[in-house]
Design a protein around this nucleic acid. Structure first.
Lengths: 211, 211
DNA sequence: TTTTAAATATGACCATGGTCATTGATGACC
DNA sequence: GGTCATCAATGACCATGGTCATATTTAAAA
């Protein structure tokens, strides 16, 4: 921070200012109702400058997501849940994550909107390792592998696939919940689904079928 | 069709023309690269007229999705798969659905984009019962309930939750596949995940944990 | 047939996200 | 401290999705 050129310092400062002003305006009026013009005016920069820092308006959303995620991911290292069964650990983690999103539904909606968008247009995609999606999968994967060691998870499963499935269910449940406007159901919903995933759908007593 | 007023006939004709021209242009240049101006010009109508028929450009995508889905859903009534195990039936159905989307990847990407969008803005949402998402869940649900009767699926599970989980996994796998640009992996991927879902993640031999 | 009311079509207009040639600030080098 | 190449800031400009007051067409009433 000290041995930085004036240019570098200014750059960081400008980016931060854009970020702060955006956050403030999004909270006040929502993501959709905030225009680039407003952001740049409030930040005291020209419109074009914004696009020197963020390729699109939507790409801003990722930065919020990342920031929020940072607060949550510590949970996995939290010792108070260390004694729990793998299933409960995963549940706790996903519910906590969802609850943090719950606080800013509008921005969260925009995140999923943008998630869809960057499928089509990788230009907006953030750094692969930083992106919330990859991090979530990785965290679940770690928990599962730990669970396999403890024999709380089937040794025979492919942990990577299982992580993707859990992630899919989490993601989808969140989408449904965002759509439904009912604030209450999410944790119950995700819990029931995780139970189902751990127990399986198929009837193991039905010997009439194999593989 | 005969006892229709001139007005009604024209309306239907115009809507169909918009639909056909859109499809043609989307195939030629992709959804994003086709403008409303082009569509209306090619269809011989004014720009405003378009919005008398479709509230947004994106809402068009749903009509394509519906149309495509109609071709696929007959599969569930297809007698050639009637003898299969519930798991295989579901697999076959989801793979077939995905393969039909595979043929028009650009439009499919736009569909998922729009899926995200209408979470935020219900204005674009199509009729609830017609929408591909609801239909998919309902179809899976039917298959599962049939499977419960045949004891190929655990009696104890909530079929509705299981259907949502399967749907989530399907949806998510499709998204990942759309993103990855690898044409080959989808059916393998979804098959592995369905296997996992039927078998379960938890280790049933680990008696040290219950519920 | 003429009048009237309602449905539909129209395109000028607007808002806003995004671009880019130009201008200005910075710092490496002499 | 002056020169110049590089990097960043700027805002006029553009493209495009979407709106709306007005004009036109149709159906019904008189």
């Amino acid at each position: 921070m000290e041995n930085m050129s004036l240019r570098e310092k200014k750059k960081i400062e400008t980016k931060n200012r854009i970020f702060e002003v955006s956050g403030k305006l999004f909270k006040e009026k929502g993501f959709e109702n905030t225009t680039i013009d407003e952001i740049t005016k409030e930040a005291g920069i020209a419109k074009g400058t914004f696009f020197n820092y963020f390729p699109t308006k939507e790409s801003l959303v990722f930065y919020f997501a990342e920031q929020k995620a940072d607060l949550i991911y510590d949970l996995t290292e939290n010792e108070t849940i260390d004694h729990l069964h793998t299933k409960e650990k995963i549940k706790k983690f996903l519910v906590a994550l969802a609850e943090s999103y719950e606080k800013d539904k509008d921005l969260t909606r925009s995140l999923f909107f943008e998630y869809g968008r960057y499928i089509k247009n990788p230009r907006n995609a953030p750094d692969k390792n930083r992106n919330p999606h990859s991090r979530l999968i990785k965290t679940i994967l770690d928990l599962l592998e730990e669970g396999i060691e403890k024999r709380e998870v089937k040794v025979s499963i492919d942990a990577r696939i299982a992580a993707e499935v859990l992630n899919a269910v989490y993601f989808h449940t969140l989408v449904v919940w965002l759509k439904s406007d009912s604030e209450l159901s999410f944790s119950r919903d995700i819990s029931a689904k995780i139970d189902l995933l751990f127990g399986g759908i198929g009837d193991e007593y039905n010997v009439g079928y194999r593989s």
